[in-house]
Design a protein around this nucleic acid. Sequence first.
DNA 1: ACAATATCAGTAATGATTTCTATTATCGAA
DNA 2: TTCGATAATAGAAATCATTACTGATATTGT
Lengths: 129, 129
Amino acid sequence: MRTLKHSRQREAIKEFLMTRTDHPTADIVYDNLRNEFPNISLGTVYRNLALLSEIGEIQKLTTGTGADRFDGNINPHYHFICKECHCVQDLKMDTMDALTEEASKHFDGKLDGHLAYFYGTCGDCIKKS
Amino acid sequence: MRTLKHSRQREAIKEFLMTRTDHPTADIVYDNLRNEFPNISLGTVYRNLALLSEIGEIQKLTTGTGADRFDGNINPHYHFICKECHCVQDLKMDTMDALTEEASKHFDGKLDGHLAYFYGTCGDCIKKS
DNA sequence: ACAATATCAGTAATGATTTCTATTATCGAA
DNA sequence: TTCGATAATAGAAATCATTACTGATATTGT
C-alpha cells in the first residue's frame, strides 16, 4: 500500500497557505517557499498542492482565467472573483448545504456538494473608477 | 472602432453548439466543423469560442479537469460534473438570482452573478457500479 | 544501521490555448 | 460593381500551466 511519508517541503507549503487569505497560485507558493528552501522545485510545489487537495487539507480553485489558485481554508465557503483586478475573496454563506439539497431534488444521480464562483467588481476597484 | 464582420465559420460554430447538450470542448467542435469546413483551423475555433462567450452568445465552462467546455444554452442554469465519467449535465434551478442577492448582503463590492458547479455521481455511473 | 520506498530537484515533455503572419472574406462607400 | 479598409482566416510557431521522467536524497519501520 502507499503510505504517506512526512516531508518538510509539504509541511511548509501547507503552513504557507494557512498564513494567506488571497488564494495564491502555485507560482506564488514556489517563490515564497524559496526563502526557506532555496532549491525547491516547482514540480514539488505542484505535486504537493495536488496531494494536499486530494486528501482535503487544502482546496484548489479553478477560476477560468490564469493559473489555478489554492486556499488553505477548508471550511465550506464560496469565492468571489473580481473581473477587473482578478483578485479572489472568500464569501461566507450559511445556505450552502441547503442549495445542494435543493438541487438534488431535480437530479437523478447523487450530489456530493457544489462550488460557486461569484463575479463582479470588488470594493477596491469600485473606489478606483 | 472595432466592428464585427460576419463569418461563416463563427456562424457554424454557434449553430453546432445549439444542436448539442453535452457541452463539447474546442477540440470536439473543431472535429465536427471539419465536415463543413475541411480547412478550418483550431485557432479559428478557439478565437470564435472566446469571442462568442465574450459577447454572451455562448457560455464557457471551466471544469477544473481537462479542457474548457462550451454551452450554447445561455439561459441561466447550473452545471453538474460527474466525478466518475466527467460528463457535464445541465441543472435547472429557479433560485439563482436569489442566491446572488443573498450573497450581495455580505459583500462590499458589486456582484453581477455567479456560477455553480455541482459534483457527484451521475445516474448512469450509479447503475454501472 | 539497514532496507524499502516515498519524496526530492532538475529537466524534459505534454496539453490547452494564444499569438503571429501572410492571405482571404466581408462590407460600406464611391 | 468595384474599391479600399480591415476583420477574419489557415497554418504554424510560441506561450503558459501543469505533469511526467530520472537518478539522488530523505523518511520510516524493523
